[in-house]
Computed example of a mutant assay.
Amino acid sequence: MSRTSQRSTYRILAGIAIPVYRMVARISWRGTENFPASGGFVVAANHLTEIDPITVAYPVYKSGIMPRFLAKESLFRVPVLGWLLAHIGMVPVFRGTTRAKDSLAAAIAELHDGGAILVYPEGTVTRDPRMWPMRAHTGAARLSLQGQVPVVPLAHWGDQNVLYRDPQGKRTVNLFPPKKVRVLIGEPLQPRELMRPGNQPTDQPTADDLNYATTVIMDRITGLVAQLRGEEAPESRFDPRARKESS
């Protein structure tokens, strides 16, 4: 599908989703000047609730950039939804299969074409009981280092008051009155800033490189969240894998 067709479909969907979102959330943001004026980039955000893809994409879209998410491949097989995802240029993620590399290649191709890829490094809604960013996966770091593009850290706070999921998975919905939602966009992290001290940027990062870069990204996101919350972030991040192993 051509980019023109994708943009047209995106605008139609945005024209539907944004007014509905604004009925339940009063959003404001700062820092859109940190989106690169040219070239591809990754937006890495914290994940509070199932509705925050709109929160994260909204300021990117309003800045004149058509954002794309990495989405689970299974969603592309859902009737109607799969068609929509494909027609707005979302990138399918084939987890745990031999096609996983295809997802990476497609995302990097989009970045090299000047696109913006939105990523939740945590991989899912945070399980931290206090809703701080938790331990993350290395996907955002891999896209940045292998694609040699910057990462723009983005934090948001408030949309969990519209739809909240507790650590046990129970959801609470509170639509009215509209909730205050704030977004803070940080300065872009260049690939060289994600490398360990003394190491040169490379598009073939090692596991240690990816882990270090992920820590840098999550530290920056967590710092932005702390600013929005007006609180000091915990010294260590919640690790859901450690919780499972100890249970």
Rank of each mutant, 00 (worst) to 15 (best):
T138Y: 02
R22G: 07
P59V: 06
A86E: 13
R99A: 15
E231Y: 04
Y120F: 15
A57V: 07
G198M: 01
R192N: 12
R7S: 08
F76S: 06
E187C: 08
Q227H: 07
R3N: 14
G39E: 07
E50R: 12
Q160T: 05
M23K: 14
G147R: 04
E193R: 12
S5V: 06
E193L: 07
A17Y: 10
V56L: 08
G89N: 03
T172A: 05
V173M: 05
M218I: 09
G15W: 04
E232L: 10
I51E: 09
F41H: 10
S5A: 14
A71S: 15
S236N: 04
Y10D: 04
V60Y: 07
D166M: 05
P177S: 13
V173R: 14
I108T: 03
V173C: 11
D52P: 10
V119N: 10
P178Q: 06
E110A: 12
R182H: 10
Q6V: 12
G40S: 08
Y61L: 11
W132M: 12
V91D: 00
L194G: 14
V151M: 01
A37E: 13
R26M: 14
G39L: 09
E193I: 00
V125H: 09
H156F: 05
A57F: 06
F41A: 15
E50I: 11
P150R: 13
G139S: 15
V173F: 11
P19Y: 00
Y10V: 09
G115K: 01
F69S: 08
R192F: 04
G158M: 12
K170V: 11
P19V: 06
V152I: 09
P201R: 02
S8T: 15
I51M: 15
F41T: 03
G169L: 06
L210A: 09
I27T: 15
I108V: 15
R3Y: 13
K179W: 09
R182Y: 07
P121S: 02
G198L: 01
G223K: 13
R229Y: 06
T49C: 11
S5K: 11
T214W: 00
S74Y: 01
N46Y: 10
P36I: 04
W157M: 08
Y120R: 04
L70K: 03
G186H: 10
Y58W: 13
N174P: 03
I18S: 10
L154A: 05
S5I: 13
F35I: 11
S236Q: 12
G15F: 08
A37S: 13
S8P: 00
Q190C: 02
V60G: 07
R7F: 10
R22E: 13
A45E: 02
P201D: 07
A155P: 01
E193N: 12
P133M: 03
L143M: 01
V93Q: 05
S2G: 14
D128Y: 09
D128T: 02
D159C: 14
K170Y: 10
P240N: 04
I12E: 00
L189Q: 08
D208L: 12
R68S: 14
R192T: 07
T222E: 04
E187A: 15
S38I: 02
G96V: 00
M90A: 05
P197T: 05
A105H: 08
D219K: 11
S236L: 09
P205C: 06
M131D: 05
F41C: 13
R30C: 02
A106K: 07
R237P: 05
M1I: 12
